[in-house]
Design a binder for these strands. Structure first.
Lengths: 120, 120
DNA sequence: TATAATGGTTACTTTTAGTAACTTGATTTA
DNA sequence: TAAATCAAGTTACTAAAAGTAACCATTATA
């Protein structure tokens, strides 16, 4: 249950090395939107994940693709068409994320209230 | 299920505003270690969450305390003693995190393998 | 008398994130 | 016919975050 906290550590930590690359704010939003819309092209995805820049979206997609969460399909049309979608693994991750995001959404107001009252 | 993705957006996104502050690499590790050891003093926690700096640990703890995940108890001893622990809410979050980290740990090797084979 | 431990803070450097302009090639609009 | 538009990004630059290392006061230990 807490196996990944093993003090024999220093070797390979799944949280630092693996999870951290897919659990940041932008990656989570990308996975959620790809989960909801099934497939999205670059610019449409960017408009869904509002406030993300081309640069960061491009970087995050590359990492998510490299680690097996996302597939990238290029169609040699004019103009070029590129579609992003979740892989099966990405869908499994989506399930886990949805569980977490639903929970946090449920308690979001509580946290915001705590945050406000804390400064005093 | 995908309620937080509502395109009416722009107002308040629980993922951007709330979850992002507790789901980064360091915050996750802090919550996991506090979950495992129940209470930890600053320096001991820092040694558990190896490679974290005083500065970042201090900052993350403040945010986690402000948002209600962590409690900070100061004992006016000499030298001063400060104990950090999860709140009830922090424990509930821990449950969710454990579910996610267990899953990612299970697939960690798969991801690493995919990562290696991807460059080719 | 020097060292280490307590829980941090401060100043500085490096890495990451964010901004805005630009690319290439073809098509639509005025 | 010339200008603007869209596709999917890239590039150069700036701002923000993370990481490094020294330091603070107090007290016990060697």
């Amino acid at each position: 249950m807490f196996g990944h906290l093993d003090p024999k550590k220093e070797t390979h930590c799944p949280i630092r090395d693996v999870m951290a690359l897919a659990s940041d704010k932008w990656s989570i939003l990308i996975v959620l939107y790809l989960g909801y819309y099934r497939t999205l092209r670059f610019n449409r995805l960017r408009r869904k994940v509002y406030d993300i820049s081309n640069k960061v979206l491009s970087e995050r997609l590359k990492t998510l693709e490299r680690d097996g969460y996302v597939s990238r399909t290029m169609y040699a049309e004019v103009p070029i068409r590129v579609e992003y979608a979740l892989t099966d693994f990405g869908h499994a991750y989506l399930e886990k994320l949805l569980d977490l995001t639903e929970w946090i959404t449920q308690y979001s107001d509580t946290i915001m209230a705590h945050r406000k009252s804390f400064g005093k």
